[in-house]
Each structure stands twice: as C-alpha cells, then as structure tokens.
Computed example of a mutant assay.
Amino acid sequence: MFHAYPTDAWTEAPKHDFSTSLSADEFKAVFRGHPGGVAVITADAGEGPVALTATSVSSVSAEPPLLIFSISALSSASEVLSRAETVVVHFLDANDLDLAKLGAARGVDRFADAHRWSRLVTGEPVYHDVRAWVRCAVIDRMGAGTSTVIAAHALQSHIERDADAGEPGDALVHHNRTWHRLGAHSRIED
C-alpha cells in the first residue's frame, strides 16, 4: 500500500500488557453519554459495494485534509474496507435518518434501492441527497483491539445542505443508543 505520510507511529506502536482494564460493559457505559456525529461510509474493493454507519469519523488535519474513522471487525463491511483504496464518507443530518438506520441494520442489502445511490465517475458508491459527502483515498490502517482505524486523505466533496456558520442546522447525533437532532433548542451558549 502507498503511504503518503510517515507511518512509523502507526506501524511501530509498542505493545502493552495492562494488569487492569475496564470491562467492555464499563467502557460502553462511558461512551453512551458521549454523543457522536453520524456518517455512512461506502466502499467497493471489486466485489460490490458495502456501507456501514459510523460515529467515529474525526477531522485530523485541514492541511493536508485528513480524517480518521474506525470499523469493527464484526461489521459485514470490514473485510472490504480493509482492502478498499478509496472510500466515500457521507456526513448525515436529521433528514438522512433513514440512511443512518439502513447503514446500521444487520442482514439487509444496503444497495437494493437503485434510485438511492449511484457510482462516482471514479467508481465509488455514493448515496444521493445526503447532507454532504467526501471521497477519500485510504492512506493507512492500524489494528486497534477488535477494530481497524483508517486514515484517509480527502480528495473530493459535495455539500447538499450546509448550515450557516455558528448555526446547528439539523445535525444528527447518536447518544445513549438513540438518534438525536441538534437544533436551536439544544444551544446552551453563544
């Protein structure tokens, strides 16, 4: 794989043996109270498109434009995402709740509705009418427990619905196992 950026920190991370650790249930309880923005990630490594809903997408750098996200090994999309050279990250708002639910559903064909998606000229599957999407080149992967952290360089974007600076728009977040819409009612300070 081509690495556009230094990867020593990713590939040579020290192994630790911790004598104590939070249980999976304790760790999940901590994060239930920490809301996350909702995205759907799509890719195709040659055998057909895959999609999954994620709340782990984070901006890393504006110059160069980098983002990261993680995928669980339990996801039906993990095998394809472990090989895909490019991905499309769809940033959702409350108008896209049905897509968020589709990407999170188990055992369904996320591409059965042919009117809902198409392929970019570069081949990646992209859903229509979402708030925004970014096509990215995968630049690195790192195993982390039962997940893989993927670093990606943003190549192309499209914004369908933008919020004015300082305004919440209709942001979609996942918090305590439920979907929420951020709006003017949720603002606590200017």
Rank of each mutant, 00 (worst) to 15 (best):
I71M: 10
D113R: 09
I71S: 11
T86C: 13
R106N: 15
S70K: 12
A77E: 01
V80N: 08
V88A: 12
A105F: 00
N95R: 15
L74G: 14
S75L: 01
H115I: 00
L81V: 08
D109N: 13
A73W: 00
L102P: 02
I71F: 04
F91N: 07
F69K: 09
G103R: 07
L97Q: 14
S72Q: 09
V87A: 10
R106D: 12
L81S: 10
D98M: 02
S82H: 04
A114L: 11
V87D: 06
S78P: 01
H115P: 02
V89K: 06
S76M: 03
R83P: 04
S82E: 00
A77Q: 03
D113K: 08
L99D: 06
D98L: 03
A84T: 12
A104Y: 02
D93H: 04
G107A: 09
H90T: 11
V88H: 08
N95G: 14
D113Y: 02
L74S: 15
A77K: 05
S75E: 01
I71P: 05
A114Y: 01
L74V: 10
V88E: 06
A104H: 06
S76G: 14
A100I: 02
L92H: 06
I71K: 11
A112F: 00
E79Y: 01
K101V: 11
F111R: 15
L74F: 05
V87C: 09
D109T: 07
I71R: 11
F69N: 08
A94Q: 10
V89N: 05
L99I: 07
K101H: 08
A77T: 05
S72T: 09
V87E: 05
D109R: 10
S75T: 06
V89H: 04
R83I: 04
F111T: 14
L102Y: 02
A73N: 09
L97V: 14
L92F: 01
L81G: 11
L74K: 15
S76L: 04
S70T: 14
D109K: 11
A77H: 03
L99P: 06
D96L: 02
A105V: 04
A114Q: 14
L102S: 08
S76F: 00
A73H: 10
A73V: 00
